[in-house]
Each structure stands twice: as structure tokens, then as C-alpha cells.
Design a protein around this nucleic acid. Sequence first.
DNA 1: CTGTGACTTTTAGTCCGTC
DNA 2: AGACGGACTAAAAGTCACA
Lengths: 69, 69
Amino acid sequence: MVVEIRTRLAQNVRRLREARGWSQEDYADRAGIHRTYVSDIERARRNPTITVVEKLAQPLEVTASELIA
Amino acid sequence: MVVEIRTRLAQNVRRLREARGWSQEDYADRAGIHRTYVSDIERARRNPTITVVEKLAQPLEVTASELIA
DNA sequence: CTGTGACTTTTAGTCCGTC
DNA sequence: AGACGGACTAAAAGTCACA
């Protein structure tokens, strides 16, 4: 892997969230995830399970697959 | 989600592994994962982390993203 | 609004088996 | 060859107070 999968997820989440003009807190609420957990994800500090990736994908209207691409 | 993400992963893994003619154990060794875990994954009993999905993807020469698509 | 350390509970993931 | 169980350890899930 050239770029760590966690880093790709982090970048995709932050990019798409910001494109929608949402704060981490707004986004976290929409995704049903804690605000600080989103913060950790965007800094690639966590190694989430695929169900969390799916939760992250839903409010962004993308697939889980796209988030780790 | 129409089909559970775990189910999609399970189906993709099993299909691609069998296409290569590998046993679960052969595959597990190549992926650096325990054989019982591969068995659980293919039966959609587990909720793996994204790093495990990447490990699963490597010997199959596909991306982690493809495995959960 | 976001980052971070610390924390408890839950589950991922391993390893031993048997059927 | 693969399903499945039990017991275990490592790590993720999930939350909080505070910077």
C-alpha cells in the first residue's frame, strides 16, 4: 500500500465533509457517531471497522467502498 | 444498505478465493490472517477493521475498496 | 469548532480443538 | 476441506473533560 488505508479514509472523509460545509459535530450527528470519534478518524488515529465506514458514508451519500478508495 | 456490508465482503472474498483454487487455510496464510477468521469472514459473522480488509485484498490482487463493493 | 489524553465496555482477532 | 465452539489477548467502540 502506497498510502495507508486509514490515511485515505481520513482524507476522503474530511474532504467530503468540508465540501458539504458541515462541522465535525454536524457530521457526527448525521452519521450517528461521536464528535471526537470523527475527529480521530480524520486524523487517521483510528482503525475503524467496516460498519463504522458505512456509517461515515451514509450522510455523505457515497459508498463505504468509495471512502477507502 | 440493501445488502449488509459484511455479506458483500463475505461473498467477494469467497468468490475470489475459490476462483484462485485456494483453501481457506492457504488463503489465510497468504493474507497473514488466522484460518478461523477467514472462515468467520466468509460466513459474514465478523465485522473486520479496514486494515484486515486490506490484508484480505492483497493476495487476491484487488483493492480493499473492491472487496466491500 | 477541533484536538487530545484518559478511560470503560465491547468486540476484533488468535489459537486450541472437535465434528 | 470447512463449520463451529471455547477461551483468551489485543484493540476498537464509544464517551468525557479540558485545552
